[in-house]
Amino acid sequence: MNTELKLQALLDGALDAREIREIEAILAQDIQSAALMQELKWMKAAVAGNEAEVKLPETREFYWSKIERGIAAEAKQAAAAPAERAWWLRFIYPATGLAAMVAVMFVVSGGRTTDGADTESVPEDVNAISFRSEAEAMSVVYVADENGTFNPVGQETKNEPEADK
């Protein structure tokens, strides 16, 4: 390790007792090393605890909705992955699912339902997420399209016409 890196290691508390004695001896004699050490100290002091404060520019519901979707997608993928299972295990999940579905339908059919409400479908090439903000009484479907290929607002509405500039 060269002297400069040893100076830095001293500053960061990464030297043992012998190395500390050695580098302090150099510092006492060499003005340039002392000046460099001072510069490193200034920088360490300036940076520590002075990270810029950044806040997430999205609401709790909106941010969470994509995470929730990601978790669901990963779970689906994991379930679809082929695994070594006993032959009867292949049937137990569909059978349980079917039984649960029949049970749910049986219970639900006893009363009025809004079956099929609050669901959305999108074409395969469209990436959309949906969530509900209870506080604002809003059900939202958000189409993520970084390239902005769909422009319902129209460019002429947004831009200044030449005459206005």
């Binding site: 990270e51 810029a52 404060e53 950044v54 806040k55 997430l56 520019p57 999205e58 709790r60 941010y63 994509k66 995470i67 990601g70 970084e146």
Partner: peptide, 25 residues
């Protein structure tokens, strides 16, 4: 903890969109 995790991603990526995506991931 979302602000802290996003802030760390933003400090490394220096890009809002990447930071949001990676923090969610």
């Amino acid at each position: 903890h979302r602000d802290k995790i996003y802030a760390r991603a933003f400090s490394m990526m220096r890009n809002e969109e990447d930071a949001i995506d990676l923090s969610q991931e």
